[in-house]
Amino acid sequence: MTLALEFGHVEPIAVYFDDLDAMGIVHNARYAVLLERAVAPYWTARGHYFDHNGPSTPDLVHAVREFSITYLRPIRGAGEVHVHFWLNHMGQTSAEYGFQFLSADRQTCFAEGRRAIVRLDPATLRPTAWTESAREVGESLLKP
């Protein structure tokens, strides 16, 4: 039975050979990179991206405050994985993602977790408020 996804977004991503460890499963440290591969296209399609000119919006200057993951089953070999992600919360200066790594048929959940980020002022590296543009995109990801 396919998992019903009623909020957030699902992004198919590629798992490459260099994401694997010596046993042929996705290395634990690669999950954060795989999550970035899934989240970045969503924001890019909505005007928030990096290119040769730097960040398109100041909201891209942020740092991960916390990353927590529970590994449920190994992802074996290269291929396609689906990443379901959403926002649990979007505060004044921070946001908290929830995420799941799913099989391409969405019948298996390999891992799940959360990632908290804080928007930073580029000059001071102190927390600063999200722009309206980021809030609009964030609201489209909020879990009801």
Rank of each mutant, 00 (worst) to 15 (best):
G113H: 05
V26T: 01
G138D: 07
L3A: 03
F7Q: 04
I117K: 02
D105K: 09
D121R: 05
S140V: 11
T93R: 15
D19G: 00
Y42D: 08
G54M: 14
T44Q: 15
R37P: 07
F50N: 14
R135Q: 13
T70C: 03
A32Y: 04
A63R: 07
A22P: 01
S140H: 12
H89M: 13
D105V: 08
C109L: 05
H62S: 14
G91C: 12
V81H: 04
H27L: 02
S94M: 08
I13V: 04
G54H: 13
L5F: 03
A32C: 01
W86P: 05
I117L: 04
A78H: 07
T70L: 02
D121Y: 08
I25R: 00
E96R: 15
S56F: 08
H82D: 14
V64D: 01
L120G: 06
G138Y: 04
A104D: 07
E132T: 14
I25W: 00
I13Y: 01
A104G: 02
H9W: 00
R65P: 01
A111S: 08
I25D: 00
Y49F: 15
R115P: 00
E112F: 07
R73H: 11
V118R: 06
I25K: 02
W130M: 10
A29W: 02
R30S: 07
G47Y: 13
P58H: 10
D18Y: 12
L102N: 04
P122Q: 10
H89V: 12
V83Y: 01
A123W: 03
P58L: 15
V83M: 05
R115C: 10
V61Y: 11
L125G: 05
V39P: 08
A123H: 07
A123C: 05
D21T: 04
